[in-house]
Design a protein around this nucleic acid. Sequence first.
RNA 1: GGGCGCGUAGCUCAGCCUGGUAGAGCACCGGCCUUUUAAGCCGAGGGUCGCAGGUUCGAAUCCUGCCGCGCUCACCA
Length: 499
Amino acid sequence: MSEESQDPKVIALRREKAEAIRARGIDPYPPRVERTHTAAEALAVGESTEPVTVCGRVGPIRLMGKAAFFHLADASGRIQVYLKKNIVGDEAWEHFKGDLELSDFAQVTGPLFTTKTGELTVEAREWKMLAKTIRPLPKEHFGLKDRETRYRHRHADLAANPEVREVFLQRSRIISAMRRWLEDPGHEFGGYVEVETPVMHTIPGGALARPFETHHNALGLDLFLRIALELHHKRCVVGGIERVFEIGRIFRNEGISTRHNPEFTMMELYTAYVDVRYTERLMEALIKHLAQENNGSSVVTLGDQTIALDCPWRRVSLCELISERCGAKVHPGMPAPELRALLGSLVDADEKPLPDEPGHLLLEVFERHLEETLVAPTFVTDFPKSVSPLVKARRDDPLLAERTELYIGGLELAPMYTELNDPAEQRLRFEEQMRAREAGDDEAMRMDLDFLDALEHGMPPTSGLGLGIDRLVMLLTGQSSIRDVILFPLLRPEISPVD
RNA sequence: GGGCGCGUAGCUCAGCCUGGUAGAGCACCGGCCUUUUAAGCCGAGGGUCGCAGGUUCGAAUCCUGCCGCGCUCACCA
C-alpha cells in the first residue's frame, strides 16, 4: 500500500476527532445540508452582502492565527472561504481549528467579497461539518500519480485529479451521444432499437475467444459469460427487428494490456437489407459525429499522434496491405510453405511459430506487423474466410469473406461484416470449427444449434458490426491505456489489505 | 512465462558506482501569525534501508536467492 491516507497515525487522529465531535453532541455526519448555491453558482453571483451557503470538500487550510483560508470543491468547481475568529465567534472558531481538516466535507454560510488578490470568496458567518474524512486525499499539488494506487483507489484518483474525472464524464457523454444518434430516425443511419440479450450463455459464440466459465446450481448447468453479442442479435433480426443494437459488457478470458481488459464494452449493431459497404459508411459517419460532439473537431490526438478524421478514409484489402509490405502478391489460396517464403522477413522475425492454415497465417502476420502502422483511419477489407466463420464469403473469391475491420491510431476499433445467412453453409462452417477445436484450437467456435435453427427460419441479407467502446473512448479522449477509460480495471488483488 | 526497472520515514525521493552507526522536502505533533493561494516562521517526534543468506573487522551500499510492484514482449479481438 502506498498512499498518504494510509498513515495509521493520521487515521487514528482523525477517528478521534470524529468521536470528539460526537461527544459534544454534534453529528459529524449530519443527514441534511442547507446548500443554496453550488461553487459555480456562487462565483456567478459576484460580490454580495446577501449570504450564500456552499458545500464541498475542504482543500488545504491556510491558518493564520485568528483567521484562515481554504477552498470548498464540489462537482461544479471550487470556491474560496475566508473564516475569521471575530466573525464566526470564539466557539465556532475553536471547533473549526480543532475539527476541520483537509478532505473533510463542510458547509459554509456568508456574504461574498473579493480578496486583495482578486479572488471572490465567501466570508464565513457560520460553518458546519458535513462529513468527517478519516483518510485524507493527497493534496492537490502533489496529486496522486502512482498508477497502481490510482487504479486501486479510483475514488481517491477521481477526487484528487479533475482531469481523470473529466475523462469519465466524456466517456458517459460519448456513449449517450452514440445512443441518441443511433436511435434518431431522422437520418440515413438512424432508427435503431436497443435490446438487451443474455450475459450468460450455454454456448459462447460470435467471436473467436476463450470464455469465462460459471455454473447455475438449480439447473446443474455450466454456463459461459458472453464473448460477443452477435448470435442473439441475429436472432432478433430473424424475428423482424430490422435495425438492432446493444451497448453491453462482454468478457474474454485472455491477457491484460494497455489495449485489453478482460471485461470490456462493445456496441454491436445489425441492419437488415444492407451489406458491409453500408456498415462501413455508418461507422465513418458515427465516429465523425462523435468526434465533433465530444471534441468539437474532427482531429484527435493519441499519444504523440495527431489523427485527422475528416479526410476520406482509406480502404485497402488485407492481402494488398501485406503485399505492399513484402513486395509479393499473397492470397489465402496459396499453400503455407509458399506463403512463408513470400512473406520473408515478416515470418523470420518471429520467435513464436505461426499457424499453418493460410488464412490464419495471413491474419497473424497482419496483426503482428501491420496493425500498428495504421494510424490514419483505414478500412481493411476482405479478411480470409477461414478466420471468419459467421461471415458471407465473396462470390468472386470464395476464400475471402465480406469482412472489414476499422483501424485508427493503430487500434483495432471495429469489425464489420456481411453476415452469413445460409443455414447449410453456416452448418458447414460450424463443423469446420468443431474440427479445429478437436485439433486443439480452444478459441474455435462451438456448434450452436439454436442459432442454426434461427437461420433456418430465415434471416434477410444483413450486415453487422462490433465497435469497441473502450478503445473508441481512448481515441476520442486521447488516453493511451484502456485502464484510463475503465473506471475499475481488473487488477491482481492486493496482498494483506488488513486494517 | 521472457526482458528491463523499482523496493530507504506516512508520501516523494537522495545516499549505493568508490562499504565506516541513516538524510531532504512534504505530511503529522507543539508554538507564533486576522487577506492566504502547496501560506510563512520556530521547534519536536518518526526508519529492523522489501525478506533471507553470503563476503567483510564493519553492509542501505558488494554477491546470491526469494517476495512484491511497474513497464514491456508474448498470449489475446
